[in-house]
């Protein structure tokens, strides 16, 4: 592989922080969820790259990414279930509509 490891890392860092940015600016619950998916994806790239370039003796990063994908799926399914439940209540999935909480 002749692309330096730093390029991959910077790519994933950019992806991660774009996710963070999205999480901050968006208020739609599903979009928030998608921002989180971006972040998780960036993390997976990190693991894989480290594994491939630096520590190829064992497949620790590989397996971590594998498990992380599975967990992300589980997390998303529960989150979607909750979002649908919220939608049934108020017919909206904007976080601001939900947050009628008083402080």
């Amino acid at each position: 592989m002749d692309v330096p490891v730093h390029f991959f890392l910077m790519l994933s860092a950019a992806m991660f922080f774009i996710g963070v940015f999205g999480f901050i600016i968006r208020r739609n619950m599903i979009t928030l969820l998608m921002a989180v998916e971006l972040m998780l994806n960036a993390v997976n790239i990190n693991f894989v790259v480290f594994n491939r370039f630096l520590y190829p003796d064992y497949f620790e990063g590989f397996f971590f990414a594998l498990f992380a994908i599975a967990i992300a799926a589980a997390e998303t399914s529960v989150a979607i279930a909750i979002i649908i439940n919220v939608y049934r209540k108020i017919r909206s999935i904007e976080a601001d509509d939900v947050a009628e909480m008083k402080h």
Binding site: F16, F23, L40, N46, E60, F64, A79, I82, V86
Partner: peptide, 23 residues
């Protein structure tokens, strides 16, 4: 909903940390 979203984001941050630790 609040819990799952904040927990997802926190675990993403945590994971990024772990990935760097691994690196």
């Amino acid at each position: 909903m609040k819990y799952i979203l904040s927990s997802a984001v926190s675990s993403a941050i945590l994971l990024y940390g772990i990935s760097l630790i691994y690196g």
